[in-house]
């Protein structure tokens, strides 16, 4: 599915605003200055998206289902090691250990961080496009993203990849927000993009 330059630019600005709001929330929670890079976005078929990901990388993934304007699934993905740093940044030094895998408290903390980022992003997207997207409760898992996409989706589905890097005061943490939607819904998302230019004053 190809986007025109204008469509791509609108989508990118929507994601930029959404991700920035998520960063603001995260900074309140982490009590730290959190910057986010302008996100890179791509709109791909599921198989193309899978090809662009390393197959055997262990990811920390927070997953929520979407219903409403966009039905599908959304995954917030960190590399295994990075997720540990993120969790430790939140939990403080009391939990820093030499071990390199997230466990115990980190799983819980990651689930909440993911829930915050995903809720902030998705609600902003819905508000900017004057529609509604509801979310399920979050699920945390550790696995490789391409493997999960293969198991949970159809090849005809469309994937919206939003890549950004979080800069916390102590380190940079690259993360990807992945939204998997059916091709019809991807089409209707594109059709709704011009709504972004309508006066944005009230919630739907």
């Amino acid at each position: 599915m190809n986007l025109t330059e204008i469509q791509h630019d609108i989508l990118k600005e929507i994601m930029n605003i959404s991700v920035s709001k998520a960063a603001t929330q995260l900074s309140v929670l982490l009590n730290d200055k959190i910057q986010m890079e302008v996100p890179e976005i791509s709109f791909l078929t599921l198989s193309k998206a899978r090809e662009s990901m390393p197959e055997d990388e262990e990811n920390a993934i927070i997953y929520q289902e979407l219903t409403g304007m966009l039905s599908g699934r959304t995954y917030l993905v960190f590399q295994g090691k990075d997720s540990l740093f993120l969790a430790q940044a939140v939990l403080g030094d009391a939990f820093s250990r030499s071990n390199d895998k997230p466990q115990f408290y980190e799983h819980e903390a990651m689930m909440e961080i993911g829930n915050i980022v995903i809720s902030a992003c998705i609600s902003t997207i819905a508000n900017l496009l004057k529609d509604r997207i509801a979310l399920s409760t979050p699920v945390y898992m550790e696995d490789s993203l391409p493997r999960i996409l293969l198991a949970q989706s159809n090849d005809s589905d469309i994937v919206l990849l939003i890549r950004t890097t979080l800069h916390a005061s102590r380190r940079d943490i690259p993360g990807t927000l992945v939204m998997v939607i059916t091709s019809e819904l991807a089409g209707s998302l594109i059709n709704k993009l011009p709504r972004f230019f309508e006066l944005i004053e009230k919630r739907p």
Binding site: V90, L91, E108, A109, N115, S119, I122, S123, L135, S136
Partner: peptide, 9 residues
């Protein structure tokens, strides 16, 4: 959007 507030945080 349902929210989780974990014990850890």
């Amino acid at each position: 959007s349902p929210q989780v507030m974990s014990q850890s945080l």
